[in-house]
């Protein structure tokens, strides 16, 4: 565990808490893509199956359980409790366009052709593109609530911090996982446009509105 990973994990945690708080306080999931949230639940459910096969640390297990359970709660809140506020008309990204190619790629390019390993690889690839329905939705509506942009900034920062963690681990531990690194870089690149808007607008007190 190094400082980059710890801050990255905390940023990931903060993102999820921010999203849940936004929904709970406003009793609404307006502006949030339910499709991205379904993908995140799928990401956690397929990646953390090793909860049952390996024990790494109490920290590791606790975080995994937190991510799985909160992602399920988020999907429940969006599709059941606050369904009336869900903006389905703008959440029109086709999930099969992500899940099918990512599934195919996980079968072809993985560290080891075993069920758990393929599911882990699927999860890593899927996470890298899971935010696309959310970004697509924002580009359709042309704006985002400030709390939603804080959520996205924390969520995007987490993988960027993991890249620094991988650089650190490569030099000091000889650790290198090509699949995670490439997917992590793709994931971070997808956020760059948003990061730019966040820094130039939201941090200066303006609402995040996209150029037409």
């Amino acid at each position: 565990m190094n400082i980059f990973r710890l801050i990255g994990d905390m940023s990931h945690l903060l993102a999820i808490v921010l999203l849940l708080l936004k929904m709970w306080k406003t009793r609404s999931c307006a502006g949030i893509s339910g499709k991205s949230q379904i993908l995140f639940a799928l990401v956690f459910a397929t990646r953390y199956l090793d909860l049952f096969t390996a024990f790494i640390s109490a920290y590791n297990s606790t975080m995994k359980l937190f991510f799985i359970s909160t992602s399920l709660v988020t999907v429940y809140l969006m599709y059941f409790k606050f369904r009336a506020t869900y903006d389905a008309n703008h959440d029109t990204f086709r999930l099969e366009f992500l899940v099918v190619p990512v599934g195919g790629l996980a079968f072809l390019v993985n560290h080891n052709f075993s069920p758990l390993e393929i599911l882990w690889t699927f999860s890593i690839y899927l996470e890298s593109v899971a935010i696309l329905p959310q970004l697509f939705m924002m580009s359709k509506t042309g704006e985002a609530e400030t709390i939603t942009s804080h959520y996205l900034f924390a969520l995007g920062s987490y993988r960027a911090l993991y890249i620094l963690n991988w650089v650190f681990r490569y030099y000091f531990e000889g650790f290198f996982d090509l699949i995670a690194v490439v997917a992590g870089c793709v994931q971070t690149i997808l956020y760059c446009d948003f990061f730019y808007l966040y820094i130039t607008k939201v941090l200066k007190g303006k609402k995040l509105s996209l150029p037409a």
Binding site: D9, A54, I56, N60, H111, W120
Partner: peptide, 10 residues
């Protein structure tokens, strides 16, 4: 081999 990689990252 069937050795499972230990994944310590989240």
């Amino acid at each position: 081999t069937f050795q499972i990689r230990l994944k310590d990252e989240l």
